[in-house]
Simulated scan of single mutants.
Amino acid sequence: MYLENPVIIKVNVSFRNDLRIKDYTAKLVKSLLISGNPSLKEIFAKGESLSPKPIHITPLYTYNVDRNSERKQEEKIEAIYSRFIPKKSVAKPPKINKLKPVKIEAGRKYFFYIGTNMKLLNDVLLGLYDINRFIFGKETVDIDQLSYEIRYVDVEKESEEILEILETAKENYMKVVFNSPTLLKDPLVVMRRKKKKLLLPLPEAILSTPFLMVLIDRGKVRRNIFIRCMRYVKSIFDIPYTTLKTINLVWYVYDNEVLPAMIGYVKYFIDYQILQYAQSVMEMKYGLDFMELLSKVTVLAQVYGVGDGRATGFGHVTIKMNTIQ
Rank of each mutant, 00 (worst) to 15 (best):
N122K: 13
F134P: 08
A106I: 06
V90F: 11
E78W: 04
F111N: 02
Y113E: 08
F112P: 07
T140R: 07
E74M: 14
K100I: 03
L125A: 04
I114P: 03
L99T: 06
R67E: 14
G137F: 07
V90W: 10
R71V: 15
E75W: 08
S69L: 08
K109C: 00
K87E: 15
I77E: 15
V102N: 00
D130G: 02
N97I: 13
N64Y: 11
M118W: 01
K103P: 02
K103W: 02
P93I: 02
G127Y: 09
R67L: 14
Q73M: 12
V90R: 14
V124C: 05
L121T: 08
E74I: 11
Y129S: 12
I131E: 07
K87M: 10
L125M: 08
G107Y: 00
K76P: 10
F136R: 03
R83P: 07
Q145H: 06
S69R: 07
S69I: 04
A79S: 14
A106K: 13
P94K: 01
Q73D: 15
A91K: 15
F84V: 10
R108D: 05
V102L: 00
P86T: 11
N122C: 03
E139P: 01
Q145R: 10
Y113K: 04
K92V: 08
I114C: 04
K98F: 14
L126K: 12
I104T: 09
I104Q: 05
P93T: 03
P93C: 07
